[in-house]
């Protein structure tokens, strides 16, 4: 899966959590700040990715997933 595909998938998931907001999100924008995600939202995103791509993301790595680009790189390295 290419990085662009992963980013598209992340946007899809984010759009379910924050309807309408994910499309305009820049790849280097801070996810939590821009979309006002709380820990419940973020867990939902991680759950979605895990479900779809079977990538395990331990809690201790949440700090590495601050932007769409960083998240996609992290996932790409594990698929």
């Amino acid at each position: 899966m290419t990085q662009d595909e992963i980013i598209a998938l992340l946007r899809e998931r984010l759009d379910e959590i924050v309807p309408g907001a994910a499309a305009s999100l820049g790849e280097d924008d801070d996810l939590r700040d821009e979309l006002d995600l709380d820990s419940m939202d973020f867990l939902k995103l991680v759950r979605g990715v895990h479900e779809q791509l079977k990538v395990d993301i331990p809690e201790t790595d949440y700090g590495k997933l601050g932007t769409l680009r960083a998240f996609a790189e992290y996932v790409a390295a594990r698929t």
Binding site: M40, V46, I57, P58
Partner: peptide, 10 residues
């Protein structure tokens, strides 16, 4: 630790 996201507790 070691649990899938579905089983994690906040």
């Amino acid at each position: 630790a070691g649990k899938p996201p579905e089983a994690r507790v906040l």
